[in-house]
Amino acid sequence: MSTTLLLLADGRFPAGGHAHSGGLEAAVTAGRVRDLETLAAFLDGRLATAGLVAAAFAAAACRGGDTSTLDSEMDARTPSPALRKASRAQGRALLRAGRTLWTLSTVERELHHPVALGVVAAAAGLAPEEAALTAAYGTVTGPASAAVRLLGLDPYATHALVARLARDCDAVARRAARVATVDELPACSAPLLDIGAEAHASWEVRLFAS
C-alpha cells in the first residue's frame, strides 16, 4: 500500500482514460445499461472478464515479463480491431505519462494498456499485485464515471456500486497476481463488449473514443 499506488490509480492521472467509456457508451445506446441495476450487472461482467485479463497482464508485465510476448498475447485476446486500437491508444498515453514521471524499462511507444500499466507500475516501484489492482479498479471506475456523464446517474449511488465491488476487485487482483507463466494467463472473453465496440466505432456521432 503506497501513495504511488494511489497516484497511478487516480482517475485524474493524465493517461487518456477520461475519453474512454470501457464499452459503456455502446451498452447505453443499445439499451443494455439504463439504470443503477443494469450498470451493476455491466460492471460485474466487465470485472470478471476484461478486468481479470487486464489485471493478469498488468501483473505479468510488472513482474518483468517480455513485453512483446505479452503484447501479442493481449492481441490474441482482443478480437475487436476497435478495442485493440482503444487499448493501444490508452497504453500509449500511459507510457507518455509514465515516461515523464519515472524511468521506464521499455522504449516501445505503444503497448496494450494492461502491458503498459505493468511496465509503468514496475518503474514506479509497485508490486505485481498492485499493478493488477490498478488494472482491475480501472476497468470498473472508467465505465462507472462514464455512466454518471451519459445517464446522469446519482454520483453517490454510482460510487456505492464501486464500493460494493471493492472485495471482488481485490480478489481479482490477488488471483491475477498468482498467474506465474504466460501459458496460465486468463482468456476470459466478453463477446458483447467486442461487438459493441465494433458498432460504436462505426457511429458518426459518439462522445467517447471507446
Binding site: R12, P14, A15, G16, G17, H18, A19, H20, S21, R92, A93, R96, A97, A146, R149, L150, R206, L207, F208, A209
Partner: peptide, 15 residues
Amino acid sequence: ETGCCPHTAIRDDIS
C-alpha cells in the same frame, strides 16, 4: 473524442 469533457482534453489530460 473528449468523453463529454472538452475542457479535460485540452487542459487536465492532454494525451
